[in-house]
Nucleic acid binder design. Structure first.
Length: 502
RNA sequence: GAUCCGUUAGCUCAGUCGGUAGAGCACUUGACUUUUAAUCAAGGGGUCCUGGGUUCGAAUCCCAGACGGGUCACCA
């Protein structure tokens, strides 16, 4: 036994000490609960509640966690939590026998048990199971959080999510909804002929977005690799390869600040459809989001942090220039040069980065004066070409990209465009990104020769879409922090002198 | 990164002006054969986040740090 273990034993609380002694007593009698390997379950709490009339008097076998106990001497009650909900257990010395009943008294809240018994209703009308035999399946050595107030400590809720799930039913509900959302999106896309694919997370060149990447290292190849910031360039290569409609739901990694809306790893849906443009993708996007809201929230009117969000189709549509003009009175169609744009920004004391161009300043105006006010779902379309290096130019307007983003609650939820497919133009755009990088923009893109090569074989006209799944989950679960929709959000290490001793 | 707030029993939280560390739930012991926040009686349990400082005396005041949360900056 290591010193570490001894130290931890000295730190045992009284409650843990008592539970440990009970466990050791089981072991002495060759009844170690951790030797149990399976338990045959024939029903669950929800089934019994829903079908009580038919099941009354029938024998059932259940398994779950003991959540509370009410002892009455020679009879007692307990609540069992299983996969489907909670059911009351009624235990009497007459049914169990004296020895087994005394042993039952030594069970602790948090223990896992399997049991057989008869479905019944108590005098007070509570649907219950009269236990005739039971087996301890696992001992909980630590007590659970308090039953009325649940677990409030945010730090503990994030670091020990299992406690949050046990103690706070609304947390379980949020993650159930997240799971259903992702399943619903898959079904929606599969029904429309999309193929789900997987592309590399370890990238030689981090492409498809403007973001700082994580760097890692492959030992055998002795090369640095980047964790992907977007699957875009791979997915478009699959369109080139003839997979007309593809999507990927996966984790992306961006080495940037953390906030109530940003986690270093987050989940994105990206899809690409050949022979479609951004107008088609707009229709698909609103239909997909509307369908998920109806499925998860029972309708297209959704409450989020006190405001009513109207997700009925169609969503509002506004060009970026219209949106800026509406908010500021400035029509950037009339502002043709970088110098004019910059002086407009300076008049308003907005900070302009040295590597910025006219389009970056238009984007700055949008982000400063428009973005946070887009509470109801709004498609903002037609973006400056300089901040859209992978997007097709709008015919007849060489400085405008066929791109839209969807905003809800002032947050970007989706980003989409008609994909740039001219390999000559793409190469120029990459070169422009390299210039930005040289001027100090750490988020600017790299030249991707493999992608340029692929484009030279011909990418058909294609529409592409990215959707932030975490943010969409926040919207549909009324969560105000991304950490509340991530089972295990990124956290700093907790200081612990006994950790990492090995 | 800047700034504000928080950290006290297993959990949820009080803690006044700087003067012996508190409650509810949970736990232990006893009573109780239909309770459901069961009840009744008695009891045990503390690195007051960490390290310094001031003071006769610090959970409390001061400084530094850790972790968490909010806001701003960056970003999706």
């Amino acid at each position: 036994m290591s010193e570490d273990t001894n130290k931890r034993e000295l730190n045992l609380t009284d409650q843990m000490q008592i539970r440990l002694e009970k466990l050791e007593e089981y072991e002495r009698r060759n009844l170690n609960p951790f030797d149990e390997v399976r338990y045959e379950v024939t029903s669950d709490s929800a089934t019994i509640h829903e079908n009580f009339e038919a099941m009354e008097g029938k024998s059932v076998a259940l398994a779950g966690r003991l959540m509370s106990r009410r002892g009455m001497g020679k009879a007692s009650f307990a609540d069992l939590r299983d996969r489907s909900g909670t059911i009351q257990l009624f235990v009497r010395i007459n049914n169990l026998g004296e020895a087994a009943y005394n042993e039952w008294q030594s069970l602790d809240i948090g223990d896992w048990i399997g049991l057989r018994g008869e479905v019944m209703r108590t005098q007070r009308g509570e649907v219950s199971v009269r236990v005739s035999e039971y087996t301890l399946l696992a001992k909980a050595l630590r007590p659970l959080p308090e039953k009325h107030h649940g677990l409030r400590d945010v730090d503990t809720r994030y670091r020990q999510r299992y406690l949050d799930l046990i103690a706070n039913p609304e947390t379980l509900d949020t993650f159930r909804k997240r799971s259903l959302l992702i399943a619903g999106i898959r079904r929606f896309l599969d029904e429309r002929g999309f193929l789900e694919v997987e592309t590399p997370i370890l990238n030689l060149i981090p492409g498809g977005a403007a973001a700082r990447p994580f760097i890692t290292h492959h030992n055998a190849l002795d090369i640095d690799l980047y964790l992907r910031i977007s699957p875009e360039l791979y997915l478009k290569q699959l369109i080139i390869g003839g997979m007309d409609k593809v999507y990927e739901i996966g984790r992306q990694f961006r080495n940037e600040g953390m906030s109530v809306r940003h986690n270093p790893e987050f989940t994105m849906l990206e899809l690409y459809e050949a022979f479609a443009d951004y107008h088609d993708i707009m229709l698909l996007t609103e239909e997909m989001i509307n369908a998920q809201a109806v499925a998860l929230c029972g309708g297209d009117q959704v409450k989020w942090q006190g405001s009513e969000i109207d997700l009925s189709i169609p969503f509002r549509r506004l060009s970026m220039n219209e949106a800026i003009e509406e908010a500021t009175g400035i029509d950037f169609n009339q502002i043709e040069t970088y110098e004019e744009a910059r002086s407009l920004a300076e008049e308003r004391e907005l900070h302009v980065e040295p590597h910025w161009m006219r389009g970056d300043i238009i984007n700055l105006f949008f982000e400063t004066y428009v973005e946070e006010n887009l509470i109801q779902p709004t498609f903002i379309y037609d973006y400056p070409i300089e901040i859209s290096p992978l997007t097709k130019r709008k015919p007849g307007q060489s400085d405008v990209a066929e791109r839209f983003e969807l905003f809800i609650n002032g947050q970007e939820i989706a980003n989409a465009y008609s994909e740039l497919n001219d390999p000559r133009d793409q190469r120029k755009r990459f070169e422009a990104q390299l210039k930005k990088r040289a001027l100090g923009d750490e988020e600017a893109g790299f030249m991707d020769e493999d992608y340029c090569l692929a484009l030279e074989y011909g990418l058909p006209p294609t529409g592409g879409l990215g959707v932030g799944i975490d943010r969409l989950t926040m919207l549909l679960t009324d969560s105000d922090s991304i950490r509340d929709v991530l089972l295990f959000p990124t956290m700093k290490p907790r200081f612990d002198a006994t950790a990492g001793v090995e």
